[in-house]
Amino acid sequence: MTTTDAPAPTTTPDTLGCTTVATDDGPFTVLFDDGVVYASGWVNDGEYLRALIHPTLRPETLEERPGGDIVEAVRAYYEGDLDAPSRIAVRQHSGPFLQSAWAALRAVPAGPPVTYSELAERAGNAAAVRAAAACCAQNAAALFVPCHRVVRSNGGLGGFRYGLDIKEALIDREK
């Protein structure tokens, strides 16, 4: 399977656009093509994000480009429109469960976080709690696929690629 919610590409792009936005949580970089996010996160390093993209979708190069609606969605999120990133298409690749889990994550609204168990259930396999955690760990499109909205069953934050301080700030912002 090849998409979270964007149509499957006919070919893998040779080059993706890359742009960085200043946010309250630090620099946020997005890799994209034709309005579709391939990878994003709180780093100022497009190459770091490029390495997170599944090899079947990974481009050869990155090119600085304006992000258009994608950048506007990030800015809108930080201005209080917490659903803005969910209106941007995302493309990731993995097996059926991770695809289902990423789609389920896209449907988790801002507000109280869900647990890894709840995410597994939403993704169609209540027993796949560890796979739900793997879905978050392998998510290349942070914010657009809001893995920060998932916590441990005891309320602990669990992990987050960009640091628990950013995860906590995102959860607090969304309460």
Rank of each mutant, 00 (worst) to 15 (best):
P109Y: 01
G111F: 12
T115L: 10
Y77R: 03
S94H: 11
W102M: 12
H93C: 14
A107P: 01
S117P: 01
R75D: 12
A101E: 06
V74N: 01
P96H: 03
P96V: 13
A73S: 14
E72C: 04
R75E: 14
P109H: 10
E72D: 14
P112V: 02
Q99D: 09
S94Y: 09
L105P: 01
Y78W: 15
P96Y: 05
P113M: 08
P113G: 06
Y78H: 15
A104V: 03
R75F: 07
P113S: 05
T115M: 08
Y116E: 05
V90D: 03
S94V: 01
I88S: 02
Y78K: 01
V90E: 02
L105S: 09
S86I: 06
L98R: 10
G80A: 09
R87D: 09
S100W: 05
Y116F: 15
V114C: 12
A89P: 00
H93Y: 08
V90I: 12
R106P: 01
R106K: 15
D83P: 00
R87L: 12
S117Y: 04
S117V: 04
P109T: 14
P113R: 03
V74M: 08
A89M: 09
E79H: 09
P113E: 03
L82V: 14
G80H: 06
A89S: 13
V114K: 04
V74E: 02
R106G: 10
S100H: 10
R106W: 03
R106M: 11
S100K: 07
D83G: 11
V90S: 06
A73C: 07
G80C: 07
E79I: 06
R87P: 00
W102F: 15
D83V: 06
S94I: 01
A104P: 00
D81M: 06
P113Q: 03
I88W: 05
A104D: 01
P112W: 00
V108I: 15
G80R: 07
G95H: 09
R91D: 02
R87A: 15
T115G: 06
A76Q: 10
Y116Q: 07
A110K: 00
R87T: 13
A76P: 01
T115F: 07
P112C: 00
A104I: 04
A84P: 02
V74R: 02
Q99K: 13
R106T: 13
Q92M: 15
T115S: 14
R75W: 05
Q99V: 15
P112G: 09
P85A: 13
D83S: 13
R87G: 14
Y78R: 07
Q92C: 11
